[in-house]
Computed example of a mutant assay.
Amino acid sequence: MTSIQAAQKTMTLVGAVNEALHLILERDERAIVLGEDVGVNGGVFRATEGLFERFGGQRVIDTPLGESGFVGAAIGMAAAGLKPIVEIQFLGFIYPAFEQIVSHAARLRVRSQGRFSVPIVIRAPYGAGVRAPEIHSDSTEAFFVHMPGLKVAVPSTPADAKGLLLAAYEDPDPVIFLEPMRLYRSARGEVPPGWAPVPLGRARLVREGEDVTVIAWGAMVPVAEQASRMAAEAGIDVELLDLRTLYPLDRQAIARSVEKTGRAVIVQEAHDTLGVASHIVAIIQDEAFYAQKAPPRRVSGFDVPVPLMAYEDLYLPTPEKVLAAVREVMAG
């Protein structure tokens, strides 16, 4: 047993990602990490720190600044039997590779009638709240959730960051793995030792409650947790679900919770129009319509590009905005 596997630790979310990557490269010789500055510099957020020194430049590869090129190369590697993990420095930088992801990674299994698969993980820091420049703070997960053939995972805790990344690596198909920058070092928690995957497609019940279901993912989970505590002070008992995986969605967990409480508030950092929250409302209408005591409410970012630093806090959902939505559904 290695020192990494020795005991449960308290660590940051980015530290949990780093530990998962060490375990993967140690366990599977087919594993390759590639991306901009992932090698010698250890990644812009140090998520890949120590990998280059331990596993060498043949398995931890610094790429040119060309997302379409190195994502396309990774798809070819995956089809040929390797297991690449690609780092995109920021989710907003993924757009040049969008054609490779949706036209090739997502379709190759169908196109080849099952002869080829693309076991690739594409990691990307995402979201606002860290005072980053333009194009560095996007939350456009709906692009990928909409595309058949892709899975999308979003951890909000260190334990889930490690566990979901291990599960994404084990999956035979492409997984978009979104890491909330805002939580990289602000989220700390206990992380199980060793190889401990967290299954894709299962939500996490963060808090049990009777009055209203609040549904969130990524960096919005701590926001929803704070709003839940504020609601409790006002005598409102919130049940909180962390989706963890946006595709596949845990429809059963959503329906079960709303059938219990009769009310729902969905919190997303992404733009409001046609976001994941809209689909969750549709699931609630399909699966728990007759249990509802009030129409579901969405708390979202606005339909504008994520603003620069001085206006970020106006754009983002806050505990106060979530609490206001909770009060609205309670009044309904």
Rank of each mutant, 00 (worst) to 15 (best):
Q113Y: 09
L25K: 07
K260D: 00
A78K: 06
S257L: 04
V322Q: 00
A325V: 05
L241S: 04
A6D: 13
Q8A: 15
G149L: 13
M147I: 15
E269T: 05
D171Q: 07
Y126R: 01
V326Y: 00
L323G: 00
T63D: 05
S68Q: 10
F177K: 01
R111L: 15
V118I: 14
L65G: 10
Y290C: 09
F90D: 01
S103I: 08
I101A: 08
M230L: 15
I101D: 09
V326R: 00
A161G: 11
H104M: 14
K83R: 15
G92D: 03
A310R: 14
V212K: 04
A168N: 09
P180E: 01
M11F: 07
P172S: 12
F93P: 06
A232P: 00
I176P: 00
L178N: 01
I101C: 09
A80S: 15
T245M: 13
I283C: 09
L314H: 07
Q100N: 09
P296N: 11
M220S: 07
D138S: 13
G69D: 10
Q89L: 11
I176H: 00
V40H: 11
G189P: 06
G50W: 02
H271P: 10
K260H: 10
T157A: 08
I101R: 02
P317F: 11
I4M: 12
E26R: 14
T245E: 10
D160Q: 03
A294I: 08
Q268F: 04
D171V: 08
A264V: 14
F70E: 07
V329E: 01
L249P: 04
V329N: 02
R204F: 08
R131Y: 14
L82G: 05
I122F: 11
A294C: 05
L249A: 09
D250E: 12
D303P: 10
I122E: 03
K151M: 14
V326F: 00
L178P: 01
H136P: 02
P148Y: 11
F143N: 05
I85N: 01
V102F: 04
Q113T: 07
S156D: 05
V276H: 09
A232Q: 09
A291N: 11
H271S: 15
I284D: 02
V110C: 11
V198Y: 13
L249Y: 02
G39P: 04
I75G: 11
Y126A: 01
V40D: 04
K321Q: 12
A196H: 14
V14W: 02
A16N: 07
L246N: 10
L308R: 08
R298W: 06
G262Y: 03
S257V: 11
A231H: 00
R327K: 13
V40M: 13
P64Q: 06
K293I: 06
I122V: 13
G72Q: 05
E259F: 06
L65H: 08
T10Y: 08
V258C: 03
T245H: 11
F289C: 06
G39K: 02
V281L: 14
V326D: 00
A331I: 01
G262T: 08
V110A: 15
A7H: 10
L51M: 06
V265W: 01
R263A: 05
A270Y: 04
L150D: 03
R297W: 04
G66E: 04
I266R: 02
E208C: 02
Q268W: 03
L249W: 05
A78N: 08
S300C: 10
D313G: 10
I75A: 14
A153Y: 09
I88F: 04
L274C: 13
Q5P: 03
E328F: 03
I254G: 04
L166D: 06
Y126V: 01
